[in-house]
């Protein structure tokens, strides 16, 4: 059963966070191990497996990027597994330059500015995904998702850099 079906939701890129939560909470109320404390071992094991599958589904669908990657894979787009590989030379160049910029950013303000740029960039490309999915353009979807993955990772690195700057100036 795919993650969307498990939560009783349509397999779509756009998902209202509130409706995801609602579906997830309702099913966890039914399956969470806390509901099975006094039940026989076999029933407890089943509930635990169900609850784990629900958690996996929720976690995957909650974040817009991981949801998009998951949906793309459902639709037959092949993504590199580890999320680290960049096989697009253009993106590789971009990534190297951005990393350099981050490295040179000497103040939290400078890092914040970079992070804000990346966030805006992510938002724009996430909303651009819809039309790519609609057109079923697999290579374009793959390219866009790889770039989003890289941006996501960059945002995380910016966070680490910021923390370091904060600590060293304190």
């Amino acid at each position: 059963m795919d993650h969307f079906a498990r939560l009783g939701l349509p397999a779509a890129l756009d998902l209202e966070p509130a409706s995801l939560d609602r579906a997830y909470f309702a099913l966890q109320r039914q399956w969470h191990p806390d509901r099975f404390v006094a039940k026989p071992a076999a029933e407890r094991a089943r509930a635990s497996a169900e609850a784990a599958a629900l958690n996996d589904a929720y976690r995957t669908l909650k974040d817009p990027l991981s949801r998009a990657v998951y949906l793309a894979e459902l639709k037959g787009v092949e993504m590199p597994g580890d999320g680290k590989t960049i096989d697009d030379p253009e993106l590789l160049m971009e990534a190297m330059e951005a990393r350099e910029e981050l490295h040179d950013a000497g103040s939290t303000q400078a890092v914040d500015a970079l992070a804000a740029k990346v966030r805006a960039d992510m938002k724009a490309s996430l909303s651009g995904l819809g039309s790519l999915f609609l057109a079923g353009d697999k290579p374009a979807i793959r390219k866009a998702l790889l770039r989003l993955r890289y941006l996501d990772k960059f945002a995380e690195e910016a966070r680490a850099r910021r923390m370091n700057l904060e600590r060293s100036t304190a």
């Binding site: 635990s48 958690n55 976690r59």
Partner: peptide, 8 residues
């Protein structure tokens, strides 16, 4: 911060 129970 992965919700538990979990099986991955």
């Amino acid at each position: 911060n992965t919700p538990i129970p979990v099986q991955l």
